[in-house]
Structures are given as C-alpha cells and as structure tokens.
C-alpha cells in the first residue's frame, strides 16, 4: 500500500494538519540546506569569504530546524501513535532532518576550510571539487523535490547518481595528492582540498540516505540492491598516484 494512493484525510482533522506541518517543515529545512550547500560551493569556487560566512551562519538555523522537527515528531508519537503510511511519514521526517543537519555540518566545514585556503596555486584543482559539489547539490535538490512530490522514482534516480560523485571524488583525490607531491609548499591548502572533497562525498552519501528514506516512506519497501560504490580513494597508494 503506497503513499501515493493515500488521498483520504484522517477522521481527526488536526492529525492531518500536524502531519502536513511536519512535512512542510522538512521541506523548508531542505531548502535552507540546499542554499547553504550552494553558498559553500560558491565559497570554494571563487574563494569568496562573504559567501563562506553566510554558509557558516546558516548552520545555526539548520540546528534549530532539526530541534523543531524532533519536537513535532515527539508530539505526533505521543498524541497520535501513527501507523502505516503515517508512521513511515513521521519516521522519514525524523531521519531526513537529521541527515539534513549533518549535510549542513559538512557544508559549514567546507566553508570554513575555504577561508583557510590562501594559495591560488590550488585553483585549477578546485574545478573538480566545484563539479563534484554542483552534482551533489543537484542530487540533493532532486531528492528534496521527490520528497515533496512523493516521487520515489526521482529519489531512486538521485540515489543512482551518487556513483558519479564517488568517481569524481576519486579523480579529485588523485589530483590533490599529485599536487601535494609536486608542491611541498602547498601541503596545508592541499589538505584542505582533500577534506573538502571528502566532505562533498559524505554529503552525497547522506543524500542517498535521504533518497532511501523517501523510497521507503512512499513505497513501503526498502531499496535492496546494493548501491554502486565508486569511491576508490581508501585503497589508493602513493605509487599509483605518481604513475597515474
């Protein structure tokens, strides 16, 4: 029994209203997360400190959203004891808000690191990171649209795209290590780049979590096939990098 076929209101109307409020709060939180991520990407693209500061600031807002959603969810559990689609709805809201909060943390961390990069020798590598970030942001937007539209297919599509982010990450990682091997004076900036890449990769993973939660919320079945994994950075050795 999927959520799309579920058009009837509850007998207790205030229950439907509370569920609607929960969903719209998650949607608003998603919007803020998305624009925070975009600010962080702008911050690394142009090493733009004012964008970085904005991204850092909106983290507090996300923390507050997460608390608000937790409050709404607790209230629904206590007062309504949601079942079936409603239960899946409430669970999804709780998990998505916590994933969004963590995405916010990573975006903030990207912004903070962008402020510590002063060495413009790294700018050519930044391009790869920006493509990665842009793709991650696009996935997040599609997933959040899927949440609002109860579209499990859209969520599924974004879920599959994570493989591309992982591939880009592997490339960026190799580039960064190469760069540091050649420019021993830029290790500090290079390390920041590597972490920024890692952060974006984590954002991609959290976005796929959200996609999985939406899929279960809408369809009542779990995504089972293993998500393709293309992040190979954990096994890359220095020799491979040099010979690449």
């Amino acid at each position: 029994m999927s959520l799309e076929d579920n058009n009837q209101e509850h007998i207790v109307r205030s229950y439907s209203e509370e569920l609607n409020l929960l969903t719209s709060t998650v949607v608003r939180m998603g919007g803020i997360t998305e624009s925070q991520l975009n600010l962080s990407i702008k911050a690394i693209e142009n090493l733009d400190v004012s964008k970085a500061d904005l991204a850092i600031k909106s983290d507090l807002e996300l923390d507050n959203f997460e608390k608000e959603i937790e409050g709404l969810v607790t209230r629904l559990f206590v007062l309504r004891q949601p079942m079936a689609v409603d239960l899946r709805n409430v669970m999804a809201a709780l998990k998505i808000s916590s994933d969004l909060e963590r995405i916010g943390d990573y975006a903030k961390n990207i912004a903070i690191r962008s402020k510590s990069i002063t060495d413009d020798k790294v700018l050519p590598i930044m391009e790869g990171l920006v493509s990665m970030g842009t793709l991650a942001s696009e996935c997040l937007r599609n997933v959040l649209d899927g949440y609002q539209a109860l579209d499990s297919e859209a969520a599924l599509e974004a879920w599959r795209k994570d493989e591309e982010i992982d591939k880009l990450y592997t490339n960026v990682f190799v580039e960064v290590v190469n760069f540091m091997e050649k420019n021993s004076g830029s290790v500090n900036s290079g390390t920041h780049l590597a972490f920024i890449g890692k952060n974006i990769e984590r954002i991609g993973d959290l976005t796929t979590n959200i996609a999985e939660e939406i899929y279960f919320m809408v369809r009542g079945e779990r995504l089972t096939d293993d998500r393709p994994k293309a992040d190979k950075t954990a096994t890359i050795t220095s020799n491979e990098v040099i010979n690449d």
Partner: peptide, 14 residues
Amino acid sequence: TTPDDKRTQDYITG
C-alpha cells in the same frame, strides 16, 4: 507498517 490493502491502511491510520 506496510499494509497491502487500502482499507486496512485507512482503518489503522484512522
């Protein structure tokens, strides 16, 4: 959590 029939769903979710 995931009933198959709409009538079940409507009943248990009020």
